[in-house]
């Protein structure tokens, strides 16, 4: 596969449909691979998948046949537990064979329980211990400035994740260096492991917080593909500041009995639940994949 550089494609209905269809397929794969593994984090993978799909298939300039291409745009999944979403996308793009998703979390697999940049082609940073991906992305963005390269660095954080103090250390440093080649997306699905974010460590007013830390803040519906594409494009126009896009999302999005049902934060579906979920995610034009 040659270099992928699609971001100048107009945001037509056709493009939106194509990305939505892909995201639906990835939702099936996320559930299939986590159920097969018997563990994992499907809820936060489903909330993140629309944005990750848009980023990889439309926004990033990258080359799956050359994952270490120096001039590539980077995507860091700071909320590493959502890696089933990343694995579905990377395998679709050919970073590794699709079949690997069936080995998720198994001994010897290239697909670890949390992202591992050494084992998995296309993974930019090993994450999983929360709060570190934004700092790593800052390092990549600083390197771009030093090397006078025009690549961008995208990083996705979870809303629970920003409880971590390191995130706010990083927020100050990104603003200090005016990293306008850094675009962060906050997957605001409103739940963390123990429940509703505002019940444990209130985050609001979220946009004001990031603004006061010197970031350009945008908000979008993280499940509206057209809005995602438009917002990502707008974010690229910001100069002199890092950008934080708050993506309002739904944990477990796409499966009725998983939506806002936090027990699926870190628990795979049973085979029976999976069957039900796959029915809801069926694509009439598409007869694969099945578990």
């Amino acid at each position: 596969m040659p270099i992928i550089n699609n971001k100048h494609e107009p945001h037509t209905e056709e493009l939106v449909k194509r990305l939505e269809k892909l995201a639906k397929k990835f939702r099936r794969e996320i559930l299939i691979m986590t159920t097969k593994a018997g563990s994992g984090h499907p809820g936060g993978s489903l909330s993140a998948i629309d944005v990750i799909t848009a980023i990889y298939f439309h926004q990033l300039r990258h080359d799956p046949s050359n994952p270490k291409w120096e001039d590539r745009d980077r995507f860091v999944l700071s909320k590493g537990h959502a890696c089933p979403a990343l694995y579905a996308v990377l395998s679709e793009l050919g970073y590794f064979p699709k079949d690997e998703i069936h080995n998720l979390r198994r001994i010897g697999s290239i697909l670890q329980g949390h992202p591992d940049m050494v084992k998995t082609p296309g993974v930019e940073m090993s994450t999983g211990s929360l709060g570190q991906g934004l700092s790593a992305a800052i390092g990549m963005a600083l390197a771009a400035k030093l090397d006078r390269k025009d690549y961008r660095v995208y990083v996705m954080l979870g809303d629970g994740e920003i409880n971590e103090g390191q995130v706010w250390e990083a927020a100050m440093v990104a603003a200090k260096y005016k990293l306008d080649n850094l675009i962060a997306i906050l997957d605001r699905n409103r739940y963390q492991l123990d429940g509703y974010t505002e019940d444990f460590l209130p985050l609001e007013p979220l946009a004001e917080k990031w603004r006061s830390f010197g970031w350009h803040v945008m908000e979008m519906d993280g499940h509206n593909m057209k809005e995602i594409l438009d917002t990502l494009d707008e974010a690229e126009k910001v100069r002199g500041k890092p950008v934080m896009i708050i993506a309002h999302t739904i944990k477990g999005k796409g499966v009725s009995f998983m939506e806002n049902e936090n027990k699926y934060h870190g628990k795979a579906l049973t085979p029976e639940e999976l069957e039900k979920a796959l029915k809801e995610l069926e694509d009439p034009e598409d007869d694969e994949p099945r578990g």
């Binding site: 940073m125 800052i138 600083l142």
Partner: peptide, 20 residues
């Protein structure tokens, strides 16, 4: 990077991924 040792370590990692 100011008094942000944790942040500093992860920034260092990010720079290293870019060949530094």
């Amino acid at each position: 990077v100011g008094i942000t040792e944790q942040n500093m370590m992860s920034i260092a990692a990010g720079l290293a991924t870019c060949g530094k």
